[in-house]
C-alpha cells in the first residue's frame, strides 16, 4: 500500500525565536530551518512500515516556498520514494494545508496519511484532524504505536489520562507523538541518492484549492518575562521562604 507523509519546514527547535521590534511578525531572518520534529517521526514510521513489507511506496509532501524542497529531500534521504511540493509564498493556515492534502489524497489514493501531531512553530495541532474530516477518514492522533492489519490500522494514542487504542478502517489519518519512534539519521549515500529521486511541483491553483487565510495575526509580542529569583543556601532556607515569603505551603 501507499503512504503519504506531510513534512513541514519550521524554525529549528533549538532556536529561540523573538518577535520583530514592530510586533508585526516573528523574526525568522537567518535562523536555522529544519524538518518539524514530529514530521521526521512521521517519515520514520512510514519507512519502518516499508521495511516490514506493509508499505510499498512513500510519498513525502510539503507545502510552502521553494525552500521547503530541502525538507522533502530530507524525507527522501530518510527513505521516502518521491516528493511533491505544493508551491506557494502565501501564508498557509491549517485549513488550507488540509484542503491541499485532500486534493493530493484524491489523486494519489494512499491507504495511510501520516502527519506530525503539531508543528513546533504554529503549535496548532489541527492539520491531521482537518484532513481526516474533509476526506471522511478515521483519525488516530497523538500516536505512540501504529499497527497495520487487514484493511485496518490500530493506533495507540497518548491522551491526558494515559493511553487509548482505537481501530480505524483504511484509508486513515495518523498523527505522530514523540514516543512513536526514534528517527534515524540519513546516511551520506542516502543523501546523495535522495537528490536523484523524483520531486514534482504543483501549486494550490492547480489543485483547485482556495488558500485565502481566515485568520489574521494582528500582533506578536514576547510573553511576560519572569524575573529570576534568588538562590537559597540550603533546604531549611527554602522551606522557610516558601512558608513565610511566598506563602505557598
Amino acid at each position: 500500500m501507499k503512504v503519504l507523509v506531510a513534512v513541514k519546514r519550521v524554525v529549528d527547535y533549538n532556536v529561540k525565536v523573538r518577535p520583530k521590534a514592530d510586533g508585526s511578525d516573528v523574526d525568522t531572518a537567518n535562523v536555522k530551518m529544519s524538518i518539524n520534529p514530529f514530521c521526521e517521526i512521521a517519515v520514520e514510521e512510514a519507512v519502518r512500515l516499508k521495511e516490514k513489507g506493509v508499505v510499498s511506496e512513500i510519498v513525502a509532501v510539503s507545502m510552502g516556498p521553494k525552500q521547503c524542497q530541502e525538507q522533502i529531500r530530507t524525507a527522501l534521504a530518510l527513505g521516502a520514494d518521491r516528493g511533491i511540493q505544493v508551491e506557494t509564498d502565501a501564508e498557509l493556515q491549517p485549513l488550507a494545508v488540509a484542503k491541499c492534502l485532500k486534493a493530493l489524497v484524491e489523486k494519489e489514493e494512499p491507504q495511510l496519511v501520516i502527519l506530525g501531531k503539531q508543528s513546533i512553530d504554529g503549535d496548532n495541532n489541527q492539520t491531521g484532524q482537518m484532513l481526516a474530516a474533509l476526506t471522511g477518514m478515521g483519525q488516530g492522533t497523538f500516536a505512540s504505536e501504529v499497527n497495520v492489519e487487514e484493511g485496518a490500522v490500530k493506533v495507540t494514542r497518548e491522551i491526558d489520562g494515559g493511553l487509548q487504542t482505537v481501530e480505524l478502517t483504511l484509508p486513515a489519518v495518523v498523527t505522530t507523538d514523540l514516543r512513536l519512534n526514534e528517527p534515524r539519521y540519513a546516511s551520506l549515500p542516502n543523501i546523495m541518492k535522495a537528490k536523484k529521486k523524483p520531486l514534482d511541483v504543483t501549486n494550490p491553483e492547480e489543485l483547485g484549492v482556495d488558500i485565502a487565510p481566515r485568520t489574521k495575526t494582528l500582533k506578536v509580542e514576547p510573553p511576560a518575562e519572569r524575573q529570576a529569583g534568588i538562590k537559597v543556601a540550603d533546604v531549611a532556607e527554602l522551606v522557610e521562604k516558601l512558608k513565610s515569603e511566598a506563602k505557598v505551603i
Binding site: 503549535d123 484532524q129 474533509l134 497523538f142
Partner: peptide, 23 residues
Amino acid sequence: ATTTGKNMLPRAAALLDVQPISD
C-alpha cells in the same frame, strides 16, 4: 484544549469550513 478537545475540535471546524484557533 485537552487531548479530547484537541482531537475533536479541528475535525468539527473543518466540517464547518472554519479555521479554528487553538489554545
